[in-house]
């Protein structure tokens, strides 16, 4: 379905010579455009459907035929979940832990990458390789020792136990190092001759030159931390300490079959990342490509 014939003109259209474009501007092009938009609509339709369901009274959710638009907008599912589950607590937990993770990941990675890029110390190549190797190591394969370790540190069911292992990802270090490597060394050297400390060089020269990638990385790190499931699911025990993506899975079993409420929790949990994306669309794109190893 993906490489059906209509796609071929599309390729040409990416950088089309004029003759081709003229040919494409005729009917088939319009049809392909229409189908593309239709497909895009279908792609987000489940999200629309979830949202609409959350605005229905519980009985209407299973009414046949399903109504594509609620007859009366009803917030009772939201009122119910806010009153009967610790959704607000989960929200706070998620906001706090995701923000702390984002700030620390960026700060620690930046410091480390700066040293790797700008300070010529013995063993730095070796260290960089060690960090690069982390790309290939799946933390999921060593969940058991990780859990044992975090438990020995007394951090199971503790927000620090949730945060610390998430700081050990090498991606941001590698991206920062690549960016720092591109900055002409004269810039730093000039400042150092003037007596600036390394910290000053980093924060007043290198960082301002990299605000853009820092911002993109921040958003992508935040979204990833917000969405993380497996580790928070394993390390947190108390219902009140869960993050929202884990919390909403607990709610489900307590409700039984209650689609409006389940969808209301889903919508509530999704709102921050959806807004973060819609507002900072270009930054998210840039960050995602940077973390995949492609420069945007």
């Amino acid at each position: 379905m993906t490489s059906s014939p209509p796609l071929a003109p599309a390729v040409a259209a990416t950088r089309p010579p004029l003759t081709l474009r003229r040919r494409l501007s005729r009917l088939p092009g319009a049809v392909v455009t229409f189908l593309t938009v239709l497909l895009a609509g279908a792609w987000v339709f489940p999200l629309y459907w979830a949202f609409i369901t959350s605005l229905k009274p519980e009985n209407d959710t299973v009414a046949l035929p399903p109504k594509l638009w609620p007859e009366t907008i009803d917030f009772s599912a939201y009122t119910y979940i806010f009153q009967n589950s610790p959704v607000v607590r989960w929200y706070l937990n998620s906001v706090v832990s995701s923000l702390v993770i984002t700030v620390l990941v960026l700060l620690l990675s930046m410091l480390c990458a700066y040293a790797l890029s700008q300070i010529n110390f013995r063993g730095r190549r070796w260290l960089y390789w060690l960090i690069l190797a982390g790309f290939m190591i799946p933390f999921q394969a060593s969940l058991i020792p990780l859990f044992i370790l975090v438990n020995k540190l007394g951090l199971v069911n503790d927000v620090m136990g949730l945060i610390l292992p998430q700081l050990a990802a090498p991606v941001a270090v590698v991206i920062y190092k690549q960016f720092f490597d591109q900055i002409p060394s004269e810039l730093g050297d000039a400042a150092r001759i003037d007596g600036a400390s390394e910290a000053r060089v980093l924060f007043s020269i290198f960082l301002p030159l990299n605000w853009s990638i820092t911002f993109s990385l921040a958003i992508v790190t935040f979204i990833a931390a917000w969405n993380n499931f497996l580790w928070p699911f394993i390390v947190m025990n108390d219902t009140a300490k869960l993050t929202i993506p884990v919390g909403i899975t607990q709610v489900q079993s307590a409700y039984g079959v209650a689609y409006a409420k389940t969808m209301a929790t889903a919508v509530t949990a999704a709102v921050p990342t959806i807004f973060a994306y819609l507002i900072f669309q270009r930054r998210v794109t840039e960050g995602v490509m940077a973390t995949a190893g492609l420069k945007g």
Binding site: A40, A50, Q252, A266, I274
Partner: peptide, 28 residues
């Protein structure tokens, strides 16, 4: 890529699910 004005909107539609938590995706 062959779209003009609608490009960003359509891209956003396909990319949006990627920013959702997994439990939201499975619930939906």
């Amino acid at each position: 890529l062959r779209l003009n004005r609608l490009k960003n909107l359509v891209l956003a539609a396909f990319f949006l699910p990627y920013v959702l938590p997994v439990s939201v995706v499975t619930n939906v």
